[in-house]
Design a protein around this nucleic acid. Structure first.
Length: 557
DNA sequence: GCCGTTTTCGGCCCGACTGTTTTCAGTCG
């Protein structure tokens, strides 16, 4: 008898999500609901097949978020296709909820709220209102994002999250598939901040066998299309996986085709002719053949890079090693996890010359913003600490809220005592573009304004930023001697590459900062560096590639 | 339900403000 097809990780994860959804509808303990969602996420990210793990009697509690109870639930799902608990819950709920449970990623509380407000009661109506933009308009961007994410099959993830996925797939290809060479390409290699598809170039003498193996990745990966040398899958996480086979003697040309954006390839071919089948084993050889200097993957977007490469004016892109200090970091004084001293020592260990401590200002209560008195104390404390510590200079600073009228959240007498400031918007995101822009321009008129923090306030895949007229803000910064940051938080990366490029064009320097809330987060600098490179920034455009004495001069207004 | 240099119970931020809301959920870091 033919063995029944094993249940995929995606299906197991969906069942766990359904449980979370129905428990949530029953007003169960929210932490319990969260636990099921967390376990679902863990299952989705596995490269091994959960069904096989169960069959092999593996200990599932080894995986984070899976304990004794959920491990038992997963076993039951693998063995019977469902769980008694889920079926019992399904029998109890309202018709709206029952219909909703076909979309396990929907949060019932939020959807019922939408139903009530828009006076609808079906998924079809929900989809319709999503498409018409009514959900975004009447319930906000976060709600819109949530529904969109839950109703569509295709997903995107932050570049930062894709790191783990890429490493797992690469490991799988090398360990389980008959390939002799693997290289990641596409938007991941270009370091695009949101990834919807990961793609690999492989060298193999048996591509069909590779496809067959990949269909078993994560238990089961849906094969969307396949040809002689290329195949497209949908992984459990909803991300697309593209794999292309190429021979070593054409590896370089294939790498270029697979990595560059369509625009890049078009401009490249306009400059030098057909790339494919050039029989070039390295990328450098292709560019050389076309009379171009090497183009870094981060720049292959079809902007001005081909022209720059032809003229030999390609910028030397900034690298992590060029960074000499941190300019945006929090401590336990506000909402950070580590003390000022711990942060300073961690920065020193990273090889930095200085670390600016930028705790939140007084009006940001939720983040433990410092009162004026607290900041005065902190200034004196840092002076003492600097006398005691060697090999690192702690800069006195603050992440100062830009209030709704464009004033700063501390009086000038206090701001004057700081080495510099990072000024940010944390409230009233809903102001119109003109008002929001004026607010920032007014703030920049304060002579103690140094760096604009996360200029648009966007949170990738969660909410769009507030609207600003980037051109006007950049021009005002140039006139007033103000600067920008590229905030390295993986879900901010704000300035965007586009805005950073515009700032560079205006000659306004940019700090690459981490906004670290703990010592470990200093390492996020690599995410900001990726973004800076995508913007074509060399170290000359970067503020904190400079020593503190040099910076201090730049900060004088 | 998970987790543990605060290990087997008790956390799992949190708190002020906003809105077109009609009394509380969502939002900022």
């Amino acid at each position: 008898m033919e063995e029944k097809a094993a249940i995929s990780n995606a299906d197991v994860a969906d069942k766990l999500m359904s449980l979370a959804q129905l428990l949530s509808a029953q007003k169960e303990n929210p932490f319990k609901v969260k636990a099921y969602r967390r376990a679902a996420k863990t299952v989705k990210a596995l490269s091994e097949s959960v069904a096989e793990l169960v069959r092999d009697d593996a200990d599932l509690t080894e995986y984070s978020g899976i304990g004794k109870a959920i491990s038992g639930t997963i076993r039951e799902i693998v063995q019977s296709g469902t769980t008694g608990q889920l079926e019992a819950l399904r029998a109890q709920v309202s018709p709206e909820m029952a219909a909703m449970s076909a979309y396990p990623r929907l949060d019932p509380a939020r959807v019922l709220r939408i139903y009530k407000k828009l006076k609808i009661s079906s998924i079809a109506a929900l989809e319709e209102r999503l498409a018409s933009g009514e959900i975004a308009q009447r319930l906000g961007a976060r709600m819109d994002q949530h529904v969109r994410e839950a109703l569509t099959e295709r997903h995107e993830m932050l570049l930062y999250e894709a790191d783990n996925l890429v490493a797992a797939v690469e490991g799988f290809l090398l360990a389980k598939c008959p390939v002799t060479r693997v290289e990641v390409t596409g938007e991941y290699r270009r370091r695009v901040e949101i990834v919807g598809e990961i793609s690999f170039l492989v060298e193999t003498d048996d591509f069909p066998a590779v496809v067959l193996k990949l269909e078993r990745y994560g238990g089961k990966s849906e094969l969307l299309s396949s040809g002689e040398n290329s195949a497209l899958f949908r992984l459990a996480s909803g991300i697309l996986l593209k794999v292309e086979a190429e021979a070593g003697n054409n590896w370089g040309a294939a790498l270029i085709v697979s990595t560059g954006s369509d625009n890049h390839i078009r401009k490249l071919e306009a400059a030098g002719g057909q790339v494919e089948n050039l029989a070039a084993s390295t990328e450098a050889a292709v560019y050389r053949k076309f009379g171009l200097s090497f183009i870094e993957p981060e720049l292959r977007e079809g902007d001005d890079e081909v022209e720059l490469a032809r003229r030999g004016e390609m910028p030397a892109l900034v690298m992590a090693k060029d960074i000499r200090g941190e300019l945006h970091a929090h401590s336990t004084s506000s909402d950070g996890a580590n003390t000022i001293e711990q942060m300073a020592l961690a920065a020193r260990k990273k090889g930095y010359e200085y670390a600016g401590i930028t705790d939140h200002s007084q009006s940001l209560k939720i983040a433990g913003g410092l009162s004026e008195q607290d900041l005065w104390k902190q200034i004196r404390y840092i002076d003492k600490l600097n006398e005691r510590l060697s090999g690192i200079r702690i800069l006195k600073s603050a992440e100062v809220d830009i209030l709704v009228d464009g004033s700063l959240d501390y009086p000038d007498e206090l701001l004057r005592e700081l080495d510099y400031t990072v000024c940010s918007i944390h409230s009233k995101f809903s102001l119109g573009k003109a008002e929001q822009t004026e607010r920032i321009l007014r703030a920049m008129d304060n002579r103690y304004f140094t760096i604009l923090g996360h200029a648009t306030g966007r949170l990738l895949l969660k909410r769009p930023g507030y609207e600003i007229d980037a051109g006007r803000v950049i021009e005002h910064a140039r006139k007033n001697g103000c600067f920008f940051e590229i905030n390295s938080s993986p879900d901010r990366l704000d300035l965007s590459a586009e805005n950073a490029r515009m700032a560079r064009g205006a000659g306004v320097k940019i700090a690459v900062t981490t906004d670290a809330h703990s010592m470990g987060e200093f390492d996020l600098i690599r995410c900001g560096i990726d973004q800076a490179r995508r913007a074509g920034l060399s170290k000359e455009s970067i503020l904190n590639s400079r020593s503190w004495p040099q910076l201090r001069q730049l900060f004088q207004r």
